[in-house]
């Protein structure tokens, strides 16, 4: 595996998460946590891709890790979990697939030529990937809160009370 490429991609994913955090005006005390969250999500996604796991599942694992991490961070930094989770999963959004889908749809409006079937299959493939990756990101982020079945992260105990 090419660890240098994975680690440098994770490093830059952290910066993407941080940039979006600033765009969404997060409290300054969460900025470092955002960088770490983005980097961990990116690290897991790109490691999975190297292990030839499909891109949808790889993104889901990255997002689920961010979702689970968001609960201890909510305790530690006193913010609602979504404030950490949303900017941290944004680097996993499939921008290139969305772009190819859009481009393909525009090409499909042209005349039907010899390669029309090829364009059609590629567009459907890219569109399906985009849709499912975005869905898996949202589910990955939302699930940890629902698995805990608590209305607020404050009620989730991190360690069992010894009393």
């Amino acid at each position: 595996m090419d660890w240098i490429i994975i680690l440098s991609k994770a490093f830059w994913c952290g910066w993407a998460a941080l940039g979006f955090g600033i765009l969404f005006n997060v409290p300054p005390r969460t900025l470092f946590a955002l960088w770490v969250g983005g980097a961990i999500g990116g690290f897991l996604k790109f490691t999975m891709l190297q292990m030839t796991v499909g891109v949808v599942f790889a993104s889901f694992i990255g997002a689920a890790a961010v979702g689970i991490l968001s609960i201890p961070i909510a305790h530690f930094r006193h913010v609602p979990p979504m404030i950490f989770a949303i900017p941290s999963v944004i680097p996993l959004i499939p921008g290139v697939f969305a772009y190819r889908t859009m481009l393909g749809l525009i090409k499909l409006t042209g005349a039907i030529g010899a390669d029309y079937n090829m364009i059609l299959s590629e567009t459907v493939n890219n569109g399906a990937k985009t849709l499912f990756i975005i869905m898996s990101l949202a589910i990955g982020v939302a699930i940890p809160m629902h698995v805990m079945r608590k209305e607020s992260a404050k009620n989730i105990r991190l360690k069992k009370s010894t009393k």
């Binding site: 969404f24 979504m82 949303i86 944004i90 959004i93 921008g95 969305a98």
Partner: peptide, 26 residues
């Protein structure tokens, strides 16, 4: 061409409405 073009507009993606949409549906 693709890398420069596709990533130049990614700062506009509506990440918050997208994720909130699924959260609300769930």
């Amino acid at each position: 061409f693709e890398h420069a073009f596709a990533t130049s507009v990614l700062f506009l993606i509506p990440g918050v409405p997208l994720i909130n949409s699924f959260t609300d549906l769930i």
